[in-house]
Design a protein around this nucleic acid. Structure first.
Length: 650
RNA sequence: GCUGCAGUAGCUCAGGGGUAGAGCAACUGAUUCGUAAUCAGUAGGUCGUAGGUUCAAUUCCCACCUGCAGCACCA
């Protein structure tokens, strides 16, 4: 646009390949792209100047390392989505005058924009908005950047009744350049950069859903309406994404849980799970696996009560901080309040406190498959991922301060080993370090928090784990490391956790006798590998799309008879496989073989052993694996031996 | 908890002011078959619950319950 002012000196721009382009006048990114080639000039949507992304038409005033950003690049896609959000906001304000705009950032696979409007947007409105967006994109208005003064921006938006926008501007840090992006008649406050014109957004976008969202993420604030959209470079990419979403829905644990007869849930027990025989087999297999691992790792297992007098939770701090989310029971004609345990830690401290402990006893690694109840808000419930009744594979490690690092490292090793054996690759596990919450939400003094946070940070580094720090997300008694896994549609769930706690031993008065024969406070490490068995099984179902590895599959083999003549042999085969330790069922129904194969395949049975009269005579079985059409004929003895070997727990 | 949407047969879903329909599953019979759906027949529902409007409600209205999506929460 306006690079009219010639400057005295040359400007040298260095391209990624090392070549240098020189300009006599102040160039823009567009000039640069044109100087490189006409096709690039056409494809360019932005320019990166010394690492900073900028509008194509902004003058580049100094020598710099530069890179042309095209629509097809990763950043180009980000720009498509962000521009698309602006187009959506324009469409909404054109269609629904009086609607206020607030913020509209990019997210994974798309974008959203939050609006304030009394009347709700209906799904029908979404298609209207989408149509209007296509109109706006077809108009292809130029997108231009303007720098405004704070006062000008405030009075402009105030005059328009955009109170949320005014608040945003007022909160911008002092000295921040306030930029406005104009597209035709419409404009928005935005940091940018944007593509040269709205037409570059293209047509490969779709509005997905409307949902409520609190202004500034605070439940005390008014609720805005958030419209989510997805946008891609071309229709092919969009179709692929929508197809992936459809595929992901097929992995949903709620759907597979029902179809595979694993569990069900019902209104009368909202937030709880009815485990069916197959699901409970899966549950017990997983529990047994973890139990064997922790037994090998020096844990002792305990079982503690469900109900406690409120005094215990008052002492621990849970009653005050989480009382609203606990199930409470009145007892002794209302003279007493009991609480159903929402976690196991105070109970484990009670066991620790029985008898005098010496420094020689530490560390004590006390584990429990502890059933807990939390009165989760109704909107938080989600299948069996977030429930009100769940079982943690919980443990508390009571140790001395000098054992923290060693114990943390030991836990990391155990935890990653378990995940690996359950089929999770390292890159699908996200590690986070949640730091101290606000003062009103935590107990203990700052020096303790400093020590605890630094302790975990060091352990993570020593373990060589990459992690993200989350300020203000820690537990009330200590910071925590979280191991997150991803569900079918990309939502991240905390599963394993390690929490360092200097506070509960103090509040619950736990101590041990040290070398100096004085009393000391132990440190508590709260840890869970799977987290909640319920949630982990949900993740496991979605991760494997129901196709469990043989050792985990609730039914490992179905022996399918070809004709009823072979029924006797079917029973014999099943008996032999059972003796070999396999979980086996038979299918002697009077149905065609293809029908039975189809049905058991849909049930995701890993191995089908098909036998007819030929096999009965030769004492053979024909194995068919899930997902393969191959047939493997073996002697019954060999098949039993081989499958038993394959089904061994890792 | 908040905003929006939804709840019809075991499952997936259609319908709509005059007390409901399909496919699959189930059951019965025939068929005895060699690797992803054999054929025929039968049965199955207080249309989430409770009120209201109406001659008449599963349909419209209200409340509640539950679920879904997101937000908030997650010891």
């Amino acid at each position: 646009m306006s690079q009219a002012q010639a400057v005295a000196h040359h400007i040298a721009l260095t391209l990624p390949d090392g070549k240098v382009k020189k300009f006599d006048t102040t160039p823009t990114g567009a000039d640069l792209a044109a100087a490189i080639g006409p096709s690039l000039a056409k494809a360019a949507v932005a320019v990166r100047v010394d690492g900073e992304y900028r509008d194509l038409l902004r003058p580049i005033e100094q020598d710099a390392k530069v890179e042309i950003v095209t629509r097809t690049s990763e950043y180009g896609l980000e720009m498509i989505r962000h521009d698309c959000a602006h187009v959506m906001a324009e469409a909404v304000q054109e269609l629904f005058p009086g609607t206020q705009v607030t913020l509209g950032p990019n997210i994974d696979n798309g974008f959203y924009y939050d609006f304030y409007r009394e009347q709700p947007f209906t799904p029908d409105d979404l298609s209207k908005i989408e149509a209007k967006m296509r109109e706006i994109i077809a108009r292809d208005a130029k997108l231009t950047r303007e720098v405004w003064t704070r006062d000008a921006a405030i009075s402009f938006f105030k005059a328009r009744g955009e109170t949320f926008k005014v608040e945003i501007i007022k909160d911008l840090p002092e000295g921040e350049t306030i930029t406005i992006y104009r597209q035709g008649q419409w404009l928005d406050l935005c940091r940018g950069p944007h593509m040269p014109s709205v037409g570059k957004v293209g047509t490969a976008f779709k509005l997905m859903k409307v949902a409520g969202a609190y202004w500034r993420g605070d439940a005390k604030n008014p609720m805005l309406q958030r419209i989510y959209g997805t946008a891609w470079r071309d229709q092919k990419e969009l179709d692929l994404y929508l197809h992936q979403l459809e595929e992901a829905e097929k992995r949903d644990h709620r759907k597979l849980g029902r179809e595979m007869h694993l569990f069900h849930q019902q209104d009368e027990a909202a937030g709880s799970v009815f485990w069916h025989p197959r699901g409970w087999t899966l549950y017990r297999t997983l529990e047994g696996f973890v139990r064997s691992r922790i037994e090998n790792d020096g844990y002792v297992e305990v079982k503690t009560p469900q109900l406690y007098d409120s005094s215990l939770f008052k002492a621990s701090g849970h009653w005050d901080l989480y009382g609203d989310n606990m199930f409470k029971v009145q007892a002794d004609n209302g003279e007493k309040w009991l609480g159903i345990k929402p976690m196991n830690c105070p109970a484990h401290v009670q066991i620790f406190k029985q008898g005098l402990k010496s420094y020689r006893d530490l560390p004590i690694r006390m584990a429990e498959f502890g059933a807990c109840h939390r009165n989760e808000p109704s909107g938080a419930l989600h299948g069996i991922m977030r429930v009100r009744a769940f079982t943690q594979d919980d443990a508390h490690i009571f140790c001395r301060a000098d054992q923290i690092t060693e114990e943390s490292l030991r836990y990391f090793k155990l935890q990653l080993g378990v995940y690996e054996d359950l089929g999770f690759k390292r890159e699908s596990i996200k590690v986070k370090l949640a730091l101290r919450p606000g003062p009103e939400k935590r107990v203990g003094d700052d020096a303790l928090w400093d020590r605890a946070e630094e302790g975990l940070r060091q352990s993570l580094r020593t373990a060589g784990l990459e992690f993200e720090e989350l300020p203000e997300e820690g537990a009330f008694y200590g910071p925590k490391v979280e191991f997150h896994l991803i569900d079918a549609i990309g939502r991240s769930w905390q599963c394993g956790t390690l929490q360092l706690d200097f506070n509960l031993p103090e509040r619950l008065d736990a101590d041990y006798v040290g070398e100096d024969s004085a009393r000391h406070r132990p440190v508590m490490l709260h840890r869970a590998i799977l987290g909640s068995l319920e949630r982990f099984i949900a993740i496991l179902i979605e991760h494997h799309a129901g196709k469990f590895p043989l050792w985990l599959a609730p039914v490992q083999v179905v022996v399918v008879g070809v004709t009823n003549e072979a029924d006797g042999y079917v029973v014999e085969v099943a008996a032999t496989l059972k003796v070999a330790g396999l979980r086996v069922e038979t299918d002697t129904r009077n149905e065609k073989i293809g029908y039975k194969i189809r049905e058991h395949s849909l049930q995701k049975i890993p191995v089908l052993a098909v036998v007819g009269m030929r096999d009965a005579e030769g004492k053979t079985v024909v194995l068919r694996r899930l997902g393969s059409e191959e047939q493997q004929t073996l002697s019954l003895t060999d098949a039993a031996k081989m499958l038993a070997e394959e089904a061994k727990r890792p």
